[in-house]
Design a binder for these strands. Structure first.
Lengths: 94, 94
DNA sequence: ACTATATTTCCACTATTCTAGAAATATGGT
DNA sequence: ACCATATTTCTAGAATAGTGGAAATATAGT
């Protein structure tokens, strides 16, 4: 972890739509959610949703696996853990 | 904590300059740093720096106290702790 | 080949953010 | 009152982000 990566991930989580997407993926557990399932839950137009998911993927917080026509999204827990650890180590030591 | 506040704070931390400012303030401990001291450390033009600090203050991550001509800035540890707790509770429970 | 479903990409528009110089404001010292 | 220092506010331009409709692409089934 370095400051550029941390800032990039924080920035992407710093949007209500994307934070909701990430939360939904975490709640969904290891099976993850199809893009269409996220769309049903959050009611975001498909192009907008695709854009937000792509940003989360780009910074490594979400991964995608294709299952036929369906793209399944998964929260990358380890990435968030690393981000939290960075914040605790770099920004919480008094 | 709620999702709007969390997203707002994450977004503000999601910028390298502001994350550096916050880190410097944490490292400075309870005495904090004057705006001018942050400027010396990070070499950011005063108007730009003022803008970034104001944003951190606005979301509650930093507070300021005036000491004569000097404005001293303090990291609000409890706010970051609350943010981290929110992430761990809402986004890390498998 | 055709059709249906899932998702992305393209496009254009609007809004916000970032940056920093210059001017203004605040405080303290002489 | 004047001057110096500290910081913000004003302003404006450039860059980035957000939004969503429409078209394109990908995959599977018939």
């Amino acid at each position: 972890m370095n400051i550029e990566k941390a800032a990039g991930q924080l920035s992407e989580l710093g949007h209500v739509a994307r934070l909701n997407i990430y939360k939904a993926l975490v709640k969904a557990g290891h099976t993850g959610l199809a893009v269409s399932e996220i769309q049903d839950q959050l009611e975001i137009p498909n192009s907008t949703l695709s854009h937000h998911i792509a940003r989360l993927v780009k910074v490594g917080l979400v991964s995608q696996t294709r299952e036929g026509r369906v793209l399944r999204c998964h929260a990358q827990y380890a990435q968030l853990d690393a981000l939290i650890s960075y914040l605790q180590d770099e920004c919480c030591s008094l």
